[in-house]
C-alpha cells in the first residue's frame, strides 16, 4: 500500500505537470482538490484516464472521480480494491 501511495504521488506530479511540487510535499491525507493540492475538474478527467490506463479501472461518470480522488489515502484504497492490472 505504501508503495502504491508513493507511485500515485509521482504519477500525479508527472501527469498533471506539477512542476514545483515533490513527492514529499504531498501528505497521504491532504485533499487533492480545492484548498489542498489545488487540483480542478480538468485534473479529475486526467486522473480518470490514469486509473483506466494504469490500473484497468473504468469510470463512466466524472462525478465518481471526485470522491475517489479525495486524498492519496482514499485513492490508494480504491485502486487496491478495484484494480484489474
Amino acid at each position: 500500500m505504501e508503495e502504491l501511495k508513493q507511485e500515485l504521488k509521482a504519477k500525479i506530479i508527472d501527469q498533471l505537470n506539477l512542476e514545483d511540487i515533490n513527492v514529499e510535499d504531498i501528505n497521504d491525507n491532504d485533499p487533492l482538490f480545492g484548498d489542498g493540492l489545488g487540483l480542478d475538474s480538468i485534473d479529475a478527467l486526467e486522473l480518470i484516464v490514469m486509473l483506466d490506463k494504469d490500473y484497468g479501472i473504468k469510470l463512466t461518470d466524472p462525478k465518481e472521480g471526485r470522491a475517489i480522488f479525495e486524498s492519496i489515502d482514499v485513492m490508494a484504497k480504491y485502486i487496491s480494491e478495484h484494480r484489474s492490472k
Binding site: 480538468i42 478527467l45 486526467e46 484516464v49 483506466d52 490506463k53
Partner: peptide, 9 residues
C-alpha cells in the same frame, strides 16, 4: 485510447 483532455482543451 487513453487520451487526456488537456491538449484538446
Amino acid at each position: 485510447q487513453f487520451l487526456t483532455p488537456t491538449p484538446f482543451i
